[in-house]
Amino acid sequence: MKILISEVIWQEGLDVLERQGYEIEYDDQLVQDRPKLLAKVKEVDALIIRNLTQVDEELLQAGSKLKVIGRLGVGLDNIEVEAAKKKGIQVVYAKNANATSVAEYVMSAVLSSNRSLDDANEDVRKGRWDRKMHTGGEVYGKTLGLVGLGEIAHRVAKRAHAFGMDVVGFDPFITEYDHVVAETGVKTKSSLDEVLAMSDFISVHVPLTPSTVSLIDSEAFQVMKSKAYVINTSRGGIVNESDLEKAISKGRIAGAYLDVFEVEPLDKDHPLLSHSNVVITPHIAGLTEESQVRTSVLVAKEVTKVLNGLPSLCVV
């Protein structure tokens, strides 16, 4: 059997596949050459991708031999999952493999927004010693609002509680007996607006779907505290970028930490880049060495299970 990998995978994942004796074609630049990708996918039994490879009807049609698609990550907005299922192609993903990395990114944003050591360091190196300017504040006693209460939110909440924060959340698919509520202690609210209104930090943890596009929009910003920070590590498009820019410009909220955007990479003239209280990173929340080893190994193992006719716990 033959496996095609069109984006970056860590060596540990390749080792898993090679030990199984599969024929592997690995080209992490293949995603940039759509005609070549469509030609090569015709001859393979499995395709392993990240978030850039568009698995649409055209690709699924070309991959007539495909049995499984492995997604090196958790987002599925670049895969037409239902269309794949209709063709008998299983889709497996890196279930929870990068959850800890994302949770740590969120807490880094929370801590940095209240007390930026980088800003203080830069100021000192310029010859200043302004202790009042860099006094900052504590996160202890502040409220963190979680939009979506899945595995990542659960891990964020555990860390936030360790810092003495109050954690509230909204998720219409979570009950009072789910572990994130019953065991982790997140206080669920009956509406998104209720969470937005009481939170000092708002962290987004929902997938990009038709119902979550522009979930955080101009109306949402009107509800928030003027000192609130928005943190988005989920997907671009969930936070309306135009509405956010207007809210920032008007001082409606204190700032934002954004790791994802509607169009990536970010255009150098994007209006949000002009705001010093908007911290922007290049889609790295889930990217740590540890998480990428876990992601690569997990997806490789689950792909081989499917190819060997075994059940996978990571099937979408």
Rank of each mutant, 00 (worst) to 15 (best):
A300H: 01
G127S: 07
V91Q: 00
V186F: 02
M1Q: 11
L117E: 03
V167A: 04
W10M: 13
V239R: 09
L258I: 14
V139D: 11
E245C: 15
I24C: 12
Y257C: 12
S276I: 01
E138T: 15
A120I: 01
L76N: 06
R155P: 10
M224S: 07
G169S: 08
V181I: 14
V102R: 00
S199G: 07
Y22H: 15
D130H: 13
H275L: 07
D243E: 15
R235F: 12
G286L: 13
Y140C: 10
M165Y: 11
K158Q: 15
E289P: 02
I89G: 11
L72K: 00
I5K: 11
D267Y: 00
K227L: 02
F261E: 05
H283N: 12
G164F: 02
R252V: 08
V74Q: 09
V186D: 04
T304F: 02
M1L: 06
K187E: 14
L4T: 10
A99H: 01
I174T: 13
A153E: 09
G148A: 14
D123S: 15
L287V: 15
E138R: 11
A285F: 03
P172C: 12
K132E: 14
N232Y: 07
A228W: 03
T304E: 03
H179R: 12
T184G: 08
T288G: 04
E176K: 15
S190M: 10
H154S: 15
L307T: 02
V41Q: 03
D119T: 00
E104T: 07
K158E: 13
G309V: 11
V31T: 03
A120R: 06
R71T: 09
E23R: 11
E57D: 14
K225Q: 08
S112A: 05
A162Y: 00
D178C: 11
E58M: 05
L111K: 01
K142I: 00
